[in-house]
Design a protein around this nucleic acid. Structure first.
Length: 795
DNA sequence: GATTTTACGTA
DNA sequence: CGTACGTAAAATCT
């Protein structure tokens, strides 16, 4: 059935979708099915009255199997079939006739039809001029059906529709008021700096640098003092310096003056400010990091400038030709950063996230210090560990070669077959005919995937007893993996470095993937390769214990670590209001060191589960208690419990049941979280950090939410401690690592007690949860290397 | 050569 | 159907 455009001829907004679906095909009306209901809801959120809009689709008939490509001649959907061409002309006529103030392109097909552009995620939120109807204003956003599939796009779509409502009041396409001065002369840039300094009406500047690899040498530096003004200058072109030493000296002098005199705004100061400090010894008067502000406001959303500008500003897309004119691109970034900062100042107060923002900003100095200081590697031990791993790899490889009668190593590349999933699948499941193992699925509706991961190999080892190959495979692969952590490049000072990311690293710079990847970012730091000092394995938060041995303290010093004991479990106890458990933790905290062993939460759990006295709990029962305490804080399934304990599925189910009987508050807490999510999809931690859960309403979302509160709370407590420790004794204590719930430092051998005392006073923080004051105990280890630390016994 | 998938390490 | 994170190499696509 033909589905034509409907709505009042006086409409200021014209909503254009893709093609009719099943319900539309039956009724002959656009957006009357599932997608239509979503559209109504989105419009409601944006304050738009559907009855006042023209609504239609590009295609007027339902395509075969609902695939829009049916109406195109090519897979890329850029060459329409004759029928489609007619419809496009019809749409053009309608727009020219009704003259709406704004046409909202819902989805990629409408975007392409109206503007000739592809990639909806790159263009959404940006006002464009229609190429189909020149002079007509187009605002692209996601198709409602996409919002049904990708719930995280709901927020962006509502923001876009709000912008559309604003733009529906007038027909004019806003002109680009930005004055961008890319690649100016030295004289012009110096004048700009000097004017900025002498004019006190401008108190803020935004800064953005571009750098060359390797080494992150600045080749472009840009400044902006207004949201529609930016200037930049080139320092390096074609690998050679643009200025003489004296000229460059003068340039940096004035940049330094500006960055001291003004409140400086950057997007990702962890990078820009660190490069300025590392290469030019400039310490800007940092006022706002828009990356951190975005994280405080919307931790669940992308944080790249292009995305943020689409939400906060009304400017044209400037990232489309990023490869072509780096100078224009940089100037656009500077101006956008300035504009976004203005928006964020107000929005953060409005959303009451300024405390979270200030807290994250306070973490920048210590994160910066940790990145630039690095961690020393003992080359001798590195070599020894590498050869030990190699011996195991070769031995297990040879044994496997003999047993399987195949060549384990590729003679040309030297690579092991055991790392190739495809080849190993063939060996195990086809050549040997072993039972095929599948990956544990996230949801029962997901497709089953064949796997040869270590869980699968371990299962095979049980299914096929007395076959040595499984252990050999596991041992072989484990050491291949371990060697990757050991065999790393260090700097000339034998150091490795990491970049600690306060907001997490995933920033989805890739426009095509912008709406795919999960963005959680619960407030814990992540650790990734430093591009300023690219030495080491990058992430220092996932080094295996054996590889930690090569990180040794220098003569006269030792590693000291403070660890928040069972931190997440303690937070869960306070959150669930489990009074017995809380008392146990409090008693343990207050007990003298020698008596702490009496207050063992896993013994207690086991005694409650098995209804036996504390003293009668067997080690086996304690293990069960420990496993369940951990797994069920995040609502693990019976299969996982069973697998972890090596028992049957029914036994796993039974254990879950008796655990919940013994800990009834946990299930109530789950329910409480679900109810809170039901209100506004938002949770707030005891520290005051907010997170919205935008994923599809499911067990998955709930489990993620259960994890959020304890994980984020512990992360924040530790970072509060880290900031305080750095501010208090950063000059006398050498802080080396942050591992989510632990802080590692180098301490002079003779000052161990003082070090621990400082660390304890910073780490054991009082936090109010449910009208009780929680304090998580810290315990301490010390030793010559990161991998050889022993508990510090205290009197 | 670029992108996606698989596996694996930590808290 | 624990969560979160980042990296490397293989597999796959263009």
């Amino acid at each position: 059935m033909i589905v034509d455009t409907i709505g009042p001829s006086t409409a200021k907004i014209f909503l254009v979708g893709e093609a009719p679906g099943k319900d539309e095909d039956i009724s002959g009306k656009p957006f009357c099915g599932y997608a239509g209901r979503t559209l109504n809801w989105l419009l409601g959120q944006a304050g738009i009255n559907r009855n006042e809009c023209l609504i239609g689709n590009v295609a007027r008939e339902r395509p075969l199997s609902n695939k829009i490509s049916f109406w195109f001649q090519d897979k890329e959907c850029t060459v329409p079939k004759p029928k489609m061409s007619e419809w496009i002309k019809k749409l053009q006529t309608e727009i020219d006739f009704y003259k709406p103030n704004v046409v909202v392109a819902l989805g990629a097909t409408a975007l392409w039809t109206l503007t000739g552009e592809k990639y909806i995620s790159k263009h959404r939120g940006y006002v464009m001029e229609s190429t189909l109807c020149p002079g007509t204003k187009v605002l692209p956003t996601y198709h409602p059906q996409n919002v049904n599939y990708e719930w995280r796009n709901f927020f962006s779509t509502v923001m876009d529709l709000r912008k559309a409502k604003y733009h529906s009041e007038f027909p004019e396409i806003p002109e680009d008021r930005r004055h961008l001065y890319p690649n100016v002369s030295l004289k012009e840039f110096l004048m700009y700096c000097q004017e900025l300094i002498s004019d006190n009406t401008f108190e803020k500047v935004a800064l953005d640098i571009e750098t060359l690899q390797p080494g992150c040498h600045i080749n472009i530096i840009g400044l902006s003092h207004l949201k529609d003004y930016a200037m930049n200058i080139a320092l390096i072109k074609n690998k050679s310096a643009c200025f003489s030493e004296n000229e460059e000296h003068e340039l940096w002098y004035w940049i330094d003056q500006v960055l001291r005199a003004k409140k400086v705004i950057m997007h990702n100061a962890s990078f820009d400010a660190n490069v300025l400090l590392f290469h030019h010894h400039i310490l800007p008067n940092l006022y706002m990091d828009t990356l951190i502000a975005a994280h405080a406001l919307w931790p669940e959303l992308p944080r790249d400038l292009g995305y943020l500008a689409s939400l906060c500003l009304d400017i044209p897309v400037w990232k489309t030709k990023s490869g072509q004119d780096l100078y224009l691109y940089n100037a656009g970034d500077c101006a956008a950063t300035f504009g976004i900062a203005e928006f964020f100042e107000k929005e953060m107060v409005k959303q009451k996230v300024d405390a979270t923002y200030r807290f994250e900003m306070s973490q920048l100095p210590v994160a910066s210090m940790l990145q630039l200081n690095g961690v020393n590697v003992d080359k001798g031990i590195q070599k020894q560990l590498k050869s030990e791993a190699t011996v195991v790899i070769e031995k297990t490889g040879d044994d496997l070669s003999k047993l399987l009668k195949i060549q384990i190593y590729d003679k040309v590349t030297g690579k092991s077959v055991m790392r190739s999933t495809k080849k190993l699948q063939k060996i195990l499941y086809i050549d040997l005919g072993l039972p095929v193992q599948y990956k544990r699925r996230k949801s029962a509706s997901d497709p089953r995937k064949i796997t040869t991961d270590k869980e699968a190999i371990a299962r095979l080892a049980i299914l096929v007893p007395n076959n040595p190959i499984f252990n050999l495979i596991l041992e072989h692969r484990k050491n291949l993996s371990l060697r990757k952590f050991i065999d790393i490049e260090t700097s000339l000072e034998s150091k490795v470095y990491t970049s600690y990311n306060i907001t997490g690293k995933k920033d989805n710079k890739d426009e095509k993937k912008v709406d795919e990847e999960g963005r959680k970012s619960f407030g814990r730091w992540s650790s990734s390769k430093s591009i300023i000092l690219p030495f080491g394995s990058g992430n220092l938060q996932n080094i295996p214990p054996i590889a930690r041995k090569m990180y040794r303290a220098p003569g006269g010093f030792e590693w000291v670590a403070g660890d928040l004991v069972q931190a997440e479990a303690v937070v869960v106890a306070y959150l669930t209001g489990d009074q017995t458990l809380i008392k146990l933790y409090e008693d343990r905290l207050n007990a003298p060191f020698s008596e702490k062993g009496k207050y063992d939460v896993h013994n207690y759990t086991a005694s409650m589960m098995y209804k036996v006295k504390l003293d009668d709990v067997t080690p086996e029962q304690r293990k069960v208690g420990k496993t369940l305490r951990h797994a069920l804080a995040y609502d693990a399934g019976p299969a996982v419990v069973a697998a972890r304990l090596g028992v049957s599925l029914s036994e796993g189910k039974h254990l879950k049941e008796i655990f919940h009987q013994a800990n009834p508050r946990l299930l109530l807490w789950y329910k409480e979280i679900q109810d809170k999510l039901g209100n506004d999809r938002t949770l707030i931690t005891p520290i005051g950090r907010k997170h919205r859960f935008l994923d599809r309403w499911s067990d998955d979302l709930w489990r993620s939410a259960y994890a959020f509160l304890p994980q984020s709370t512990v992360g924040d407590i530790l970072n509060e401690a880290l900031v305080e420790l750095y501010n208090l004794c950063g000059d006398i204590l050498d802080i080396k690592l942050q591992l989510h719930d632990a802080i590692y430092v180098w301490s002079p051998l003779e000052h161990r007690e003082e070090t621990i005392s400082y660390m304890r006073s910073c780490m054991q923080r009082k936090v109010e949860i449910n009208n009780r004051v929680m304090e998580i105990e810290a315990d301490f280890k010390a030793g010559p290397s990161w991998g050889e630390m022993e508990d510090v016994k205290e009197a």
